[in-house]
Design a protein around this nucleic acid. Structure first.
Lengths: 225, 225
DNA sequence: TAGATTGTTAATCGATTAACAATC
DNA sequence: TAGATTGTTAATCGATTAACAATC
C-alpha cells in the first residue's frame, strides 16, 4: 500500500542483468591486468558462465557500447561499469558487531576499490570497546545513532548475532542510516525509506546442503565417477 | 559438451522455488518457538515477503501437504523441509584459510543445526598452524588432500585470499572433495564432477552500491521523504 | 573485401499471479 | 453449515536465446 516502489521496473535494467554486472566487472579487471585491450561478448561470457547473447543484452542497458566486428574496449567498459554500479562513489559506513565476521569485513581487501569506507565500529562487549582495528576505535553501541548522524553515515553493516540485529537496525534508522547490509539471519523491520540487503549465509548453506543430498543419491547409483 | 547437466531440470523443483525454501524454514523455526502449531500460506508469505500463492506453489514440490481450510502443520512442515534440504544429513567439511572469515564460519552458531561439521582446518601461515580453534587443530595446507581423503570429507570451504583459491581448489579435488563452498572472489576451474557454490561478497557490495547511487539520485529530487 | 562481432528483434522458455473448485 | 484455506489450472508477465541485418 501507499507508494509501492516498482522494484522490477527501476531504471530500465532488469534484476537478473544487474546481478551479472559485477561478474563482468571482475573479469574486466583481470583482462586489464593481462593487458587485454579488447574483449568480445563471447569471451566475457565464457569466463563468467553466461551466453554471449545475454552478455550483450546485459551490456546494452549501459549507454557505453561495443564496436561491431571488434568487441568492447576493456578499459572504458570497466569505467562505465564502475560508474553504473556506483563503485566510484564513496560509501561511508558504520559497522556494528566486531566479532570474527565483522573483523573479516573490516579488513577485506578490495572493499576500498569498491568505494566502501568503514568509518565507525560499534560493539556492546566492554572487552571489545576501545580496541583499535584498522585505525578505527570500537565504540559502545549506545553511541551508534549519535555518531552515525554526526558523521553523516548513510550505510550500516550489521554483523551481530540474530537476537541483537533488530535493535541495532532501529538504532541505525534513528541515526539517519538509509541502507543496511545485514549479515544477521533475521528479517528486519524498518521504514520503507530504508533499504535492506540481506546476506543470509545459513540459507546459502541450506542450498548447498540440498545439492549434496541430491548428489549423494547419484553417488549411490554410480560410485566413483 | 559431454554430459551437460540439466541444472534447471533437476528433481522437479525450480531454482527460484528452491531458494525460497530456507526462508520458510527459518520462519517455521520461529513459529515453533512461539508455540504456533499451524501456519497458513498467507502468514508464511507475509513474514518472508512472498505472495501466498507462490508459497503454496513452492511447497507443492514437497510431498508434505497442507490441509485445506486449515493451513500447514508447523512441525511436520519444518521436518519435511529439513529432510528435503538435507539439513538432517551430516555434512563433514574441511576449511582452508583460518583468517577472520574462516574463524567466523568455524564459530558460526547454528551451522550445526544445519548439519555442517567442520572437521579439519588448514592454513599456510606457520603462526596459525598448530592453533586449536573450537577443539580443532590447524594443519598445514600441504596435508589437505591426504587428510581430506583419510577423513572421507566431501565438502571443502575456501576462505583464503583470491590468489590462493585455485591452488586450494586443486588440492581439494585431489583429496576427493565433491563440493566446494567458495568465499574467495574467483571463478574456480574444477572437474564437472565437483560442484562449486560461490559466495561473492564483493559482488553483493556492488549491488548495494548500485542501489545507493540510484537512491541518492532520488534524494536530489525529493529531499527528506 | 572478407571476416568478425555487435545491437536488437522475434520466438521460446520459464516463473509469477489470479482465480477457483475441492476440502476441511 | 459457513468460513477458511489449500492445491492447481490458466493467464500473464518476464527472461533467455537464436538469428540476423548493420557495421567495423
Amino acid at each position: 500500500m501507499s507508494r509501492r516502489i516498482q522494484v522490477g521496473d527501476e531504471g530500465g535494467i532488469r534484476r537478473p542483468s544487474l546481478q551479472r554486472l559485477p561478474t563482468y566487472y571482475r573479469r574486466l579487471l583481470e583482462a586489464i591486468e593481462e593487458g587485454n585491450l579488447i574483449v568480445s561478448s563471447a569471451e566475457l561470457g565464457s569466463t563468467t558462465g553466461v551466453p554471449a547473447a545475454q552478455v550483450r543484452k546485459d551490456l546494452s542497458f549501459l549507454s557505453e557500447t561495443g564496436t561491431p566486428g571488434v568487441g568492447y574496449d576493456v578499459r572504458s567498459l570497466a569505467t562505465r561499469l564502475e560508474e553504473y554500479l556506483g563503485l566510484t562513489t564513496d560509501k561511508e559506513a558504520a559497522l556494528v558487531g566486531v566479532g570474527n565476521l565483522g573483523r573479516a569485513l573490516i579488513s577485506y581487501p578490495g572493499f576500498a576499490r569498491y568505494g566502501l569506507h568503514i568509518l565507525a565500529l560499534f560493539d556492546r562487549d566492554p572487552a571489545t570497546i576501545g580496541q583499535i582495528i584498522n585505525g578505527c576505535p570500537v565504540l559502545p553501541v549506545d553511541q551508534l545513532s549519535t555518531v552515525a548522524r554526526h558523521l553523516g553515515v548513510r550505510l550500516g553493516i550489521i554483523t551481530v548475532p540474530a537476537g541483537a540485529a533488530q535493535d541495532v537496525a532501529a538504532l541505525m534508522v534513528q541515526g539517519g542510516i538509509r541502507a543496511i547490509w545485514n549479515f544477521a539471519p533475521v528479517r528486519l523491520v524498518v521504514p520503507d525509506s530504508v533499504w535492506v540487503q540481506y546476506e543470509d549465509i545459513a540459507a546459502r548453506l541450506a542450498l548447498l546442503s540440498h545439492h549434496m543430498r541430491r548428489t549423494q543419491m547419484v553417488d549411490a547409483d554410480s560410485r566413483r565417477l
